[in-house]
Design a protein around this nucleic acid. Structure first.
Lengths: 332, 332
DNA sequence: GTGAAAGCGCTAACAG
DNA sequence: CTGTTAGCGCTTTCAC
């Protein structure tokens, strides 16, 4: 049994496509379709299990009820959880999520964005590695519904959902100093994103503030394409240099480092402390102990949804920049 | 500057839509379009940054290059990681992932499936909670490209990517008995899915096999809607009953239990051992020690992709049932 | 109350 | 070598 279209329904029932379409879109009353006809249509579509072709509808109406969700890696718990919350929020409103991971690769990001545009997504929620990219520029120029989160480029006017990177990192590091830290190293992904830059700034501020002073040699950078080995190398380096605390600018590296510590430096898991931006469940019961900065995932999702919906509903579009306060989590 | 369509391009260049379309689809040579014309078109589309409307194309061609990925929860690392691998595999082939989470809810599952069908996805990859559902039945009846993973219903003929649930659980439990376990409890989600049933079977088999015998009272079930509290309650119960080992049928509950142990039963994290189906990174360095059954995530993704591609390319469709062998991971 | 017809942007058979 | 045209399934204006 082939799939029925509106045309088929109309023919089978001896009606016109128009009438059927009106009924299907709950415009029966408004258009004065007799309730008898309406019932006939409704009963029939149930009987044959009619499924409207969303593609045709999209082509006609010019919207797809689809939101593109662009992130470095959908399997990173931070992005996965936000994705799930977005999915839930948008589900209510009839929007669905198309996903794309970029691995922080600018070319891939361009391609994914193009793909989203070609597919006529209605809006984009983006943790971009390259906000200055061509695609993004033209989207912004065209006033396309778009919100960035987790990443910022101060040179680019847009909607941003961010957290207070600098101050929270500063607080976290100061807390660890209060707890006794004296020689603090840092490991970060290449900070070509402002969030990471600011987190590193926060670390420096804390050290200066607490009269420890920072040593450029204790700031170690790991390349994105070399995560595992890079982290291993830099971790070893810091341990050799005799740090008592290691600060991480995001969960990814911290998680790898915890694994490394438990695998290769078992003797040091109690003497070395960690500080990490982002929070993951396992910090609660793993060693080394970690002071973490938990981003308010639910709020990030909530505000993203709200901004997008506002734009979609009313076309108003002064850009918003929302900066959320993360939660400092200390573990005994 | 409004978005250009093929029609605009054709007009601007004084050509017909056909010619432009042919060039755009690399059929220029095949259709004997002069290389001069081809170059004109190519140059022009670059200049105006033409983006083809994928929706229109989809409507015409009847395929959307979209794959629906239906899982209980996209933020569960198991499903997130597989999702990421699928995304990568399909990216190469020009397919993209539309996601839907069901929370193991039958109604939600039906709705998501309908959504996927309305949107004309070309294929589905599904970890379903209810393979006997109406939507799935009619998809299967219509020979829709579809592969199930992680879940099975032996009464339903279809493509399945599974793992050896029973035997691997048996092996894992026997291993823990070899290591000294004598009183083993089990906590599971409601086993209305065959995989879970089989995992529980494997647990029973091991106990019988090793002359321990199983006690129905040590098998505790947690409802999906009550994960946290349910797990807490059942964990407490088992501890009261004096088990030395707790077996979990999936990662979700095991992860919660690890957290609970470290929070409320710190004194017991060394005396009690865990066995868990699924593997997550944190098992490597958390207490209690866990013997885990690691599903071959990469193979699950690979075979899913292959089956789908085979169907999409050649329309052949004898159903496949692939049963993969998980890896037993023991931790000292 | 209901229907005819145009058109969303694209493809592809067919015509020249 | 290039253009005309029909049509994918749907919405919606206008007409009866």
């Amino acid at each position: 049994m082939k799939k029925k279209s509106i045309k088929d329904i109309a023919q089978d029932l001896g009606l016109s496509k128009t009438t059927v379409s009106f009924v299907l879109n709950n415009k029966g009353d408004e258009k004065n379709i007799s309730s008898k006809t309406q019932k006939r249509v409704l009963d029939y579509i149930r009987e044959v299990n009619y499924q409207p072709n969303q593609i045709a509808k999209s082509l006609k109406k010019g919207n797809t009820n689809t939101i593109g969700y662009l992130v470095p890696d959908i399997s990173n718990p931070f992005f996965a959880k936000i994705g799930r919350l977005l999915e839930d929020h948008f589900w209510e409103k009839g929007y669905h999520l198309l996903i794309g991971s970029t691995d922080e690769n600018k070319d891939k990001e361009e391609q994914v964005l193009n793909m989203f545009v070609n597919r006529q997504v209605d809006a984009l929620i983006v943790a971009s590695c390259f906000i200055q990219g061509d695609s993004i520029k033209s989207l912004l120029a065209a006033n396309f519904p778009l919100v960035f989160f987790d990443r910022e480029d101060p040179d680019v006017e847009a909607n941003y959902i961010l957290v207070e990177n600098k101050i929270s990192m500063k607080n976290a590091v100061e807390k660890s100093i209060q707890n006794g830290a004296r020689k603090l190293g840092l490991i970060s992904l290449t900070p070509d994103v402002y969030s990471l830059k600011n987190r590193i700034e926060g670390y420096k501020m804390a050290l200066i503030n607490k009269d420890i002073g920072f040593d450029q040699d204790l700031i170690r950078i790991v390349d994105n394409n070399d995560l595992k080995q890079g982290t291993e190398r830099e971790l070893r380096k810091l341990i050799e240099l005799g740090v008592d605390t290691i600060v991480f600018t995001n969960n990814q590296i911290a998680v790898i480092a915890i694994w490394l510590m438990n695998t290769f430096y078992k003797d040091k898991v109690n003497s070395i402390k960690f500080v990490s931006f982002d929070n993951v469940d396992q910090f609660d019961y793993s060693l080394p102990k970690v002071i973490s900065v938990a981003q308010p995932i639910d709020k990030i999702a909530k505000y993203s949804t709200e901004i997008i919906e506002d734009i979609l509903n009313s076309k108003k579009s002064e850009n918003k920049r929302i900066e959320l306060t993360p939660k400092l989590i200390e573990r005994k």
